[in-house]
Design a protein around this nucleic acid. Sequence first.
DNA 1: AATTATACATAAGTATTTTATGTAATACTA
DNA 2: TAGTATTACATAAAATACTTATGTATAATT
Lengths: 120, 120
Amino acid sequence: MYNYLMYKNDWLKGSLKTIILKLLSEHPRMYGYEITRMVEQQTENNIKLTEGALYPALHKLESQGLLVSQKVNVGKRIRKYYSLTPQGQTAALQHIEEYFSFVRTMLVLLSNKKPPSSNP
Amino acid sequence: MYNYLMYKNDWLKGSLKTIILKLLSEHPRMYGYEITRMVEQQTENNIKLTEGALYPALHKLESQGLLVSQKVNVGKRIRKYYSLTPQGQTAALQHIEEYFSFVRTMLVLLSNKKPPSSNP
DNA sequence: AATTATACATAAGTATTTTATGTAATACTA
DNA sequence: TAGTATTACATAAAATACTTATGTATAATT
């Protein structure tokens, strides 16, 4: 139905980790589905995460020790809540800082105006 | 020696096309090596394109009709100059616009502050 | 003479994402 | 109450883009 994102380009590639770390740094614990919903809500449906990308990314971050998960029964269904480990907290802050730095660099590159022509 | 970029992350993935289109929209023609140099210069070495990524990207943009190339002999060496086709010009403007829109969206997501705690 | 810079190119390997598929409970609606 | 949509997890094949490595060759510098 939907692509990964409204933006047809690949800009979001590599930003999934950044988004996950950011949301978890603002919320004590979240589960996967909740993350997709919150991203849609906060970006007014401009960014839509796909499950096929999100769940493996969460698993990887957990295997790297940045996240821990906890399964919680909700009725007969299971929710898997993720939260940042202490290591993950540090990594998240640094990661987000670096992202801003990256964006600043890209904006320098993309905001550059054509240099004045050498003709008078 | 260097990675694709100083930023160890994958944020630049998918932005290579954007960078190429931007530089070519500001310069009537450029060749690959020149693009890598200009990106380094303008980003103070924060972004370094690798040839293994750049050349295939240029080829692809050309095959898509956004660029045309022209080989020029410089001494005994060959330079391959690229420039935007009319279609490429339009695409570049739109692409860069969309990139800014994407960045704005990401910044909304990543600048969100923790909502005030419900405790008094 | 040797190294660095210029200038192109491709190919194997890796990583990330898309797309598709699967399972199952719960909620809504016609 | 039957069908659809939503919630909620997961994985696997295919596509894609990039890194890393390699190759060729000229020109400039040390």
